[in-house]
Structure formats: C-alpha cells, structure tokens
Design a protein around this nucleic acid. Structure first.
Length: 224
DNA sequence: ATATCGATTATCT
DNA sequence: GATAATCGATATG
C-alpha cells in the first residue's frame, strides 16, 4: 500500500498552481492534478487534502460532459477561462467540484473525486456530520472525502459559494508540494454515455480513492 | 460479500 | 416530466 507522504510544515510553502497549468487538455490536467493539494482557506485555518482521484471531461466532443450540448446557464463557467471552479448540484443533494481547463471556448474540465485528508480533519468531519474518535483509522478518515459529493461536503463547497472562483487566486485553490507517485487509469464512474474511454485517474493502491472501502492486505502473521 | 433502493431538486427536453 | 459526473441504508447469500 502506498500511503502518500503527509504534507508537513517543513516543506516549501505551498504555492497555487499557475494559470498555465490549466491551459492544457483535460486528460493531462487530470493526471497532473493527482498528488497536489486542494485547499479551502488561506492563512491559518485551512482545510486541505491530497488529490488522489480525478476524471477528465472533454467538452463539446464528450457525450458524458455537461458541456456536450453547448453553453447553458449551469455550465457557463466551463466555456470561460481555465483554472476556475465549476460546481454543480446533482441528485437533489450533492455538490461536485471541477476545475475548467484549456483556453476560453474549450469546455474541458476535471472532476476532483477524492482527497486524502491532511489538515483541518476535525472541521471536515464536522462538515460531513461524521464522528471520528481519537486516533481515527484509515477506514474512518476515508469516509471524509472519498467521492465527489463527500469531498464537496467536507470542504463546504457549494454552487452559491464557489462556482466560478479562480482556483489560482481565491480561498479555494490547488497547491503543489512536489509529491509524485504512480498513476492508474480506468473508465469514468456513474455515467451512462461515453463509458469506454479511460478518463478516470487514481494514485495506485491509495486507500482514499472512491469505491469499495479499503481493506488491509492480509499478512500471514495477522491471519485469524 | 454483492445488490438494490430511496432521497430530493436544479436543470434540460 | 425525466434525468442525474451520488451516497447511505437495507436486504440477501
């Protein structure tokens, strides 16, 4: 199992990814966002987690994308400049957080699907309405932000509050601390069209990705 | 362990 | 009026 390295305060100051990072294809941005840190807040009271799962949505030529049929009131941000938050409401109760890619006019984006919680964990638990006792297990921590709806709830992301925000310069931003690791791709989750292409990207063997709960590999010594 | 189901509403046809 | 880039709960083997 490859748990990611915790962000620690001795690393160089976390700096927002620059605009040019997002001025590329959704596939590339989705891959390269993995391992970076999604942050809510600036300064002292920060909520932060490492991005461990993403999906690329390609825009007009992607039947599964919200932008597939062209601009509407809901998806307007996708047709604007790169590096802005696209937040939508789904199933009557969940928000999902995306970042726009490519130059204005190209409606690509990346859905951020899961975080490994790093700081502000107690606040995330409060936002999610879950109890973590002391010394929470990975299984408990996983419940905070493994899945796009959970992630948005953990960071208090809503459409009213966050849609359209500049992710390179606002209280909702993404920073690079230099972390890199192996990446896996799979088909995207929960869609009914364009189901084949492998546009979902995950950190290999990371327990904080969405889907089946993580199970520790049985070791000979721990078998019962 | 996997399967199915209900919640609840903005958005689009 | 139908659908949806989900989640959590319940049922069943």
């Amino acid at each position: 199992m490859t748990l990611t390295v915790p962000m620690d305060e001795t690393r160089p100051k976390l700096k927002p990814l620059a605009r040019r990072f997002y001025l590329r294809t959704p596939e590339l941005v989705a891959r390269e966002l993995l391992g970076n840190i999604l942050v809510r807040g600036r300064g002292r009271h920060r909520l932060a987690g490492r991005i461990v799962e993403t999906e690329a949505y390609l825009g007009l030529n992607d039947a599964a994308a919200h932008a597939a049929a062209g601009p509407t009131a809901r998806n307007a941000v996708l047709f604007g400049p790169a590096g802005h938050a696209y937040v939508y409401f789904i199933y009557g109760m969940h928000y999902c957080f995306n970042v726009s890619c490519r130059p204005a006019g190209n409606a690509g984006c990346v859905l951020i699907r899961a975080l490994e919680p790093i700081s502000g964990i107690a606040a995330m638990a409060r936002s999610r309405g879950v109890e973590l006792g002391i010394a929470p297990t990975v299984a408990k921590l996983r419940r905070l932000a493994s899945g796009p709806g959970r992630l948005a709830a953990a960071l208090g992301i809503t459409r009213a509050r966050d849609n359209g925000k500049d992710v390179t310069a606002s209280d909702l931003w993404i920073g690079d601390d230099g972390f890199k690791t192996a990446i896996v791709s799979t088909p995207r989750i929960g869609i009914t069209r364009a189901v084949d292409p492998q546009l979902r990207f995950l950190l290999a063997d990371n327990p904080y990705v969405s889907g089946k709960p993580f199970r520790a590999k049985p070791s000979p010594a721990s078998r019962r």
